[in-house]
């Protein structure tokens, strides 16, 4: 496969940045998207050019590092896949692929395709935890949890914090991420105790960091590689309203 690439290059956080065109002639359809970028970087290194900086770690869709905005979609054209799970067979021979970093005021680009997602960590630090030491796993029947709640909490906990929701949202809102973190805690007995304080603290931090507001376009749900549902956002809104009026 011949692939034409248009990649955002930016020396550092303060540099202006621009798109640079590259061409790769011998791309295999079996290659993963990141392997294609590895091939490009090998070529660049051999040419004494600086390789393209992009974030990656596990390369199996669970660490949440590898978010890239590919041809107008976070994580590219696949459904419920991360960038590392995307393969070159998803593209046509001779196609131009435009690769951009996540764009949000709260996610500043620090180099090339790497956006600083520390804002997510700051939101978790603000309240995305259980304060008491819950100890090791208790005996299975000592705390009874409805199967439905356990399933929903587990589904919410599938969020890998990649930031695709922020990248896809026209408002750069982080509400799908935060609501998933809130849901996974609030649906379980240990997390329920601090639900009111948690939602207020996390939403306040979200606003402080400059994320946008949710206008219910649901692009986040459509692009989430882990299928996190917007019903989580409704749960968060419910808890937020309850916390404010109580």
């Amino acid at each position: 496969m011949k692939i034409k690439l248009k990649i955002w290059r930016q020396k550092n956080a303060k540099a202006k940045g621009k798109f640079v065109n590259y061409t790769l002639d011998d791309v295999s359809p079996e290659m993963s998207f990141l392997e294609m970028l590895d091939a490009l970087n090998s070529k660049l290194i051999l040419q004494d050019d600086e390789p393209v900086a992009f974030e990656h770690d596990c390369r199996e869709g669970i660490c949440g590092c590898c978010g890239l905005y590919i041809n107008g979609r976070p994580h590219g054209p696949g459904e419920k896949t991360t960038t590392c799970e995307l393969h070159m067979r998803s593209f046509k021979d001779g196609q131009t692929i435009v690769i951009e970093p996540w764009r949000a005021k709260a996610f500043p680009v620090i180099k090339d395709l790497i956006a600083d997602r520390n804002a997510f960590d700051k939101i978790i630090i603000a309240g995305g935890f259980v304060s008491v030491n819950a100890g090791s796993a208790p005996e299975a029947n000592s705390i009874l949890i409805k199967k439905k709640n356990a399933d929903e909490a587990f589904d919410s906990a599938a969020c890998i914090g990649c930031g695709a929701c922020v990248a896809a949202c026209k408002n750069a809102s982080a509400m799908l991420f935060i609501s998933a973190k809130i849901s996974q805690l609030t649906l379980l007995n240990q997390g329920k105790v601090e639900a009111m304080e948690r939602v207020q603290a996390m939403v306040a931090k979200m606003d402080e960091l400059g994320f946008g507001n949710c206008t219910n376009t649901y692009a986040c749900e459509a692009e989430c590689p882990k299928g996190i549902k917007v019903t989580n956002i409704a749960r968060m809104n419910r808890e937020f309203i309850a916390a404010k009026v109580s």
Partner: peptide, 18 residues
């Protein structure tokens, strides 16, 4: 607020199905 939250926009407009 939402326009400010995006900051620098994308070159390719979002193609997410909504």
């Amino acid at each position: 607020q939402n326009w400010i939250a995006r900051g620098k926009g994308y070159k390719i407009a979002n193609k997410t199905k909504t």
